[in-house]
Design a protein around this nucleic acid. Sequence first.
RNA 1: GCCGGAGUGGUGGAACUGGUAGACGCGCUGGACUCAAAAUCCAGUAAGCCCUGCGCUUGUGAGAGUUCGAUUCUCUCCUCCGGCACCA
Length: 835
Amino acid sequence: MELRYSFADIEKRCQDQWEARGLFKASDDSPAQRYYVLEMFPYPSGRIHMGHVRNYTIGDVVARYKRMLGFNVLHPMGWDAFGLPAENAAIKHGTHPARWTYENIDYMRRQLKRLGLSYDWSREVATCAPEYYRWEQFFFLEMYERGLVYRKKSKVNWCEGCQTVLANEQVEEGGCWRCGGQVVERELDGWFFKITGYAEELLNGCGGLPGWPEKVLTMQRNWIGRSEGAEIGFRLEDGRKEITVFTTRPDTLFGVTFISISPEHPMATELSRDTGQCEAVSAFIEQCSMIPPKERRDLKEKKGVFTGAFAIHPLTGRRLPVYVANFVLMEYGTGAVMAVPAHDQRDFEFAKEYGLPVSVVIQPEAMPIQPEVMDGAWEGRGRLVDSGPFSGMWSEEAKGAITRRLEEEGIGRRKVTYRLRDWGISRQRYWGAPIPMVYCEKCGVAPVPKEELPVILPCDAQIDPQGRSPLAGLESFYRTVCPKCKGEARRETDTMDTFVESSWYFARYACPNEDTKPLDRRLVDKWLPVDQYIGGVEHAILHLLYSRFFTKVLRDIGWLSAGEPFKNLLTQGMVLKEGAKMSKSKGNVVDPDEMIKAYGADTVRLFILFAAPPEKDLEWSDQGIEGSYRFLQRLWRLVTNNIEVLKDAKVDRRIILASVERLPELKVIRQKTHQTIARVTEDIEKRLHFNTAISSVMELVNECTAYLNRFEDPAKMDAGVWPVMREAVDAALLLLSPMVPHITDELWRLIGHEGHICLEPWLKADEEAMLSETMSIVVQVNGRLRGEIRVSRDAGGKTIESEALSDPGVKRHTAGKDIKKVIHVPGRLVNFIVA
RNA sequence: GCCGGAGUGGUGGAACUGGUAGACGCGCUGGACUCAAAAUCCAGUAAGCCCUGCGCUUGUGAGAGUUCGAUUCUCUCCUCCGGCACCA
């Protein structure tokens, strides 16, 4: 009787049993070594997409594999549930964001369960739940107490589409990271996290993350953008004030011929007062401010205007005209630079444009440069000239020497500057965690007392179709009393950036139900850091940098010990269709539900793991998934067509060894079995390359099938076949079980085992079984392949070489020629060099 | 411009520290089974060459180099992808 592979029934049954038996619960007390595998939790947008399927399947294989190795595995899932799409849906469909979000969560949770993912669902968190964001508000207050949160009015990135502020990290190519909409500048009050206070540690920490892709580390390093240099004060001619500049090239100090300041520099207008340049300066500043930030970045032309003021060179006393220049950024350094046209390309271009002097102070070793014939700045190293007492020094050496001199004279100091800026977290939106602050006329800004947390996000707010913050207009929310004077006060109506929630959720999974404090340190320290984190590379800076920052803050406050949240990071590639990212507008979306319905979750998982290594982009292929389905059916038939004999076969080492002695073909199969165990283990353990792991199991299954197909009548087969086959099949099932958990679970039972395959220990290859008596040696003549010989494993060099020489192909090419040299790589090849 | 990563058959992708290039899958071709088809099974499948055979030549983006031997190491260049970009 044929047993059909009815994946739908099998998968449903397995999933129900796993859940009923609580197989994937992580134990807080188990003495077994712990392993924490985590995938980036999804935003509950409505449905799971193929990117999620890929992400979560990869994580699931790791989780299941580690469990079989005996680890106590934590593999949780949750929802990044605050965010703008919920509000947009509310406007469009009239459903409340909360309802929309929770309905999506319910739907997506069912989708994930249908994939057979081995999560500990008892630890599920949703960040929009007060039980979660309450502790986020708590952290906010603790950070406030420590000066890590502050409020300031500043120029911010305002997204017209989302009607809210964005952090610097959230602006991509001048547009919004989420909606791609235009980003404009606005002057706004907002709360900031002092991430710059951790710049140095975040940067240094990159060196201690060998388990992260180099690419991500480089991106973070670039984003933090550390530069070492000096701050130098240039006194103005009239002696009243000073302009402070930042430079990374104090060695070029003697080559300064003018000073450039940003149009936004507070002294810009002031300097031009009473100089006759006042109007020109104001006009220029006005002109610069008109250009939107998006266009400003493309503008390469250097423009500026003389302020009429002069500064005095601190060491030479030279008069230096002060210019307002469009390329000087107020946000970086001090907003003012000392211009050294000979040794800075931008200053060079500016100097040429406005006829300012170029004075060379660094001479490159190769050929001397002269200002008159230069067509660009010399930015390399060299020897100092015309630099007073420092002349003759190497530029590298002069950096320190000149800085020390400035420090002695009290004119300047060593200074490290970062590109990284503080993280603005205020969002003028409804669907987010309220910022627990109160404004009082009398007392000013006051934190909400911790005992009063959470500040609940009210559910009766009216969502404004214009996209304005509903909380600002909701009196029942914002009217409150001042915690200090008990007088009338107003609540903060901005909510927190949703990246705040995702910056610590991985810690909350350790103690998701803790309701007296944010984290249970004992449990958090048991589980953190995450051993393997998996997600898209699009968060290389955003989420991953914020999480690292938060971890360090929580460590310093005393909530956990880990210095870094994620020990190993895998950034998985995208799922493409026809070479492009799947999107509704392109109409190339493949729906996971449909695929599961048509082929089953195992086939979908198998294809997605097989089609490409995880870090590379994956091209979806309808024929490819057919191929995966065919393989599973072949596996199914291999077991079910021989079910009775396989069931009766004993996997007994002595019986197997006896069979193998008698039938050499079986020895090959047994050898293959153990080679496959070794190969799969290595592929998963060392590189998480499931594609090659799967292909080697395919080879094993193919070999078994091919062997059995050779017999027309199975009854005629030697009984010794079955123990060896049984060993091979058991191995194939065990090795595949983390990847295709349902079919292997079913076959495991059918073949006569008790219990679930995922509870079985991982296999260890038998080294001895992997060896064969003979080995094949490739023979080359002059580096070209001319033959192949089989020799006994313990054959000596002489025997192999004479054997190789007698190979007909080799003979043909060596006949009548002198052998000049023999290269013999033991176990691999022999190469004869002939004249 | 700077910093990463990648270029391998018709196609997705293999090749561990330099040692048989193209594993495995898809597609395609032929055959078996079938009245026929699907499914399945078997065989073949880098290109070119006299296909006379298990024969020869070329071939991992292009060009050079190191080596007995290079997809792998070095240099130059080209293309694509990603990141940063007037950061002083």
